[in-house]
Each structure stands twice: as C-alpha cells, then as structure tokens.
C-alpha cells in the first residue's frame, strides 16, 4: 500500500451532508474490471451537465482547485454502498484526505486501504474550517499523520483520532494482507477446531 505521512494543500469544499457513494461515483461506472479511468468519473453527476459538458460551477472544475488534495465535506461522508471505487476515484483524481465530522464505516475502511486519510473533526472545528475556507479560498491546511495533527493557519493545531493499527499501516505502507497471512499457522489451527 502507498504511504501517507504529511500533506499540505488547499481545500475543496463540498458542504453537503450524507454524500453517498452513488454521488462519489455513480453505479454506471462500476462495470470496469480494473481501476483505470475512475478519476474522470468522480462526482460525475455533479461535474458534468446532462449533455456531457463540464459544469463550470462545480468546485472540482474550478481551475485553482486542480491540484487540491484535501476535501472538506459535510457529515456522514461516504454512506451507502461498499464500492471501493469511491476511494479509488477520489485518489485517482488527486484527493489524499477528506475532512468531515463523521464517515460511514465501510467507506472509512476502504479509504484506509488506499492511503486516503479520513479525518474526523468536531462540529465546531468543522464549522470554523468552512468559514475559513469560504473567506480565504487559498488557505492551505497541513496534515501530519505521525503526530495526528491538522494544522490550520494562522496558528491552530487540532489533533485528530485514528486507530493505531491503521496509522502504522499508513505511515509504513504496511500490506494488510501480508499481515493476515503472517498468521497462517493460527488460521490453520482455527480451521481444525
């Protein structure tokens, strides 16, 4: 798995609550047998008009956001289906971290396996981030995973939670399947019981 250590980037804001995986990547893009091209399908129904033309109003299409790596979104991000195509599409487009007050369980699990960092903040911090980025769209946030810190200019440091195993995997690029398979003898013993 790819590693995640630090990140500094401007922020794309999609304030909607309950952004479900059908919005992140609609089902019609799930007929692939590989992971290619999913970045183009990210938020497809919001990014493109019904005639296929680009919707210039949607944040992902703003030219100043093309290199942004952090997405700030409303509560309960990633609810709905288990499709890992959602984090694949986000990372393929260039997103490396999503900030919200909460994430759906399966989406969070899937993200952590793809070096996409789900950052949970309190409602107050969430609100202040919205205000800050709305007022100063060029704001850059920094993330340091080792210290679990989100650095908000000018001088706020917020600690975010992450479970210690997932953190270790992200920092070191640990291969989780390799970890499971290292317990082969215990798995075999379990099967015999």
């Amino acid at each position: 798995m790819a590693k995640f250590t630090h990140l500094k980037s401007r922020v794309i804001v999609i304030p909607n609550r309950n952004i479900d995986t059908d919005q992140i990547i609609p089902a019609r893009f799930l007929k692939v047998t590989d992971k290619n091209g999913l970045g183009e399908a990210l938020f497809s129904d919001w990014r493109y008009n019904s005639d296929g033309s680009i919707n210039p109003d949607f944040v992902l299409n703003h030219h100043q956001n093309q290199d942004a790596k952090i997405l700030l979104a409303g509560d309960n991000f990633g609810c709905g289906s288990s499709r890992e195509h959602a984090p694949w599409a986000l990372t393929a487009w260039g997103i490396s971290a999503v900030i919200s007050t909460s994430f759906a369980d399966i989406f969070r699990n899937n993200s952590l396996k793809n070096a996409l960092l789900p950052i949970v903040v309190t409602t107050d911090i969430h609100q202040s981030l919205f205000e800050l980025v709305t007022k100063s769209p060029d704001t850059e946030l920094s993330i340091d995973l080792a210290s679990q810190t989100l650095i908000i200019p000018p001088d706020t440091n917020v600690t975010f939670p992450i479970d210690s195993f997932a953190k270790k995997c992200l920092l070191n690029g640990v291969d989780q399947l390799g970890y499971i398979l290292s317990h082969e003898s215990l798995i075999e013993a379990y099967e015999l019981t």
């Binding site: 288990s82 499709r83 699990n109 989780q176 798995i187």
Partner: peptide, 22 residues
Amino acid sequence: FGIGTSEVEHVLASQCLLQHKP
C-alpha cells in the same frame, strides 16, 4: 456485513478479515 474490494481479496486469500469490534 459488506466489505470493500481490498477486503474481498483478503478473504479470498486468507479466509480472514481484519476487523475492529463494533
């Protein structure tokens, strides 16, 4: 419960999953 594709691979290969207790 539902899992993502990385986890599908884990289960195919090992018949196991890494899980935190809900």
